[in-house]
């Protein structure tokens, strides 16, 4: 039994309601969860399970209705540069070039404090290289394919070097082949070859069970209406993960396990 390090983020009895009383809708109910430093945590669940709400609360964009949400022991009360967010629609600035988008947080936010112009440019160049966008620096988002835009959004997130990477279905809008390629890329950029202590903490929302199993160390399964914790599934697949992982038996078994956890609700959701 290994000793677990202190959680990076701790959710205790978190509840989230939308709308006023008495007609409030409960999106998340009594959710308690420890997010460990350096882990890749995926959150899956049928639609209506409040997974995006959880991410928005972690980002500080939505306040919790009750319960507590802390990072390194301090309550999360609003957005902070130490928690970077990647939005589902990428939220790229259309008037900025690829390089301008990636350097945006360094130029205007605290991520760039104390860095000289040359240091910021160097970091942007390094990240552009890392995500494979070399040669597209001066293009505008509308000139890029979906996969390229996704890379820009990821690069912008990575360039700011947040401690926590919050991702809301970042690959959802892509075609199947591009998704698989970008899953591999994501793990490489995250640093799956490095020891856990050097990895950044990721909270990854997805509706794809396969994707969650392939990427994550643990998969949090939520149930819907209201969103509650159903089960946390440990994914003990060896890293680095690659195509072999996708073909392995334990990969399919884990996916199957999770699917069975949410199948009934997922069916029900399609009937509504």
């Amino acid at each position: 039994m290994t000793l677990q390090p202190a959680p990076k983020i701790k959710l205790a009895h978190v509840r989230k309601e939308f709308g006023g009383t008495p007609a409030a809708i409960v999106a998340v109910e009594s959710l308690s969860l420890d997010i460990r430093p350096g882990e890749f945590l995926a959150i899956v669940g049928p639609s209506g399970c409040g997974k995006t709400t959880v991410l928005n609360m972690l980002a500080g964009l939505e306040p919790v209705t009750s319960g507590t949400m802390t990072m390194d022991g301090k309550a999360i009360s609003g957005p902070g540069a130490e928690r970077g967010v990647m939005f589902q629609d990428y939220a790229l600035f259309p008037w900025k070039t690829v390089a301008g988008n990636i350097g945006f947080g360094l130029e205007h936010g605290p991520a760039g404090h104390g860095l000289s112009r040359a240091e910021r440019d160097a970091r942007v160049a390094r990240v552009i290289d890392l995500v494979g966008l070399k040669g597209s620096e001066t293009k505008y988002p509308h000139q890029l394919s979906g996969g390229m835009r996704q890379r820009v959004a990821l690069a912008r997130l990575v360039a700011n070097e947040p401690e926590i990477l919050l991702m809301d279905e970042p690959l959802a809008a892509l075609d199947a082949q591009t998704r698989i390629i970008l899953q591999d890329e994501l793990l490489r950029i995250w640093g799956q070859d490095k020891p856990t202590s050097e990895r950044r903490t990721v909270v990854y929302i997805t509706h794809s069970i396969d994707e969650a199993v392939f990427l994550a160390d643990r998969v949090v399964v939520l149930s819907s209406h209201p969103g509650r914790l159903k089960r946390i599934v440990d994914v003990d697949l060896a890293r680095p993960r690659n195509d072999e992982t996708r073909k392995s038996r334990s990969f399919s078994e884990l996916s199957q396990t999770i699917w069975e956890l949410i199948r009934e609700e997922a069916y029900r959701a399609t009937m509504q």
Binding site: A59, G60, L61, P79, G80, A81, R83, G84, V85, F87, A91, F93, F104, G105, H108, G109, P110, A111, N160
Partner: peptide, 8 residues
């Protein structure tokens, strides 16, 4: 929101 989360 993106700029907000970047601490701008």
């Amino acid at each position: 929101r993106a700029a907000y989360t970047m601490g701008v």
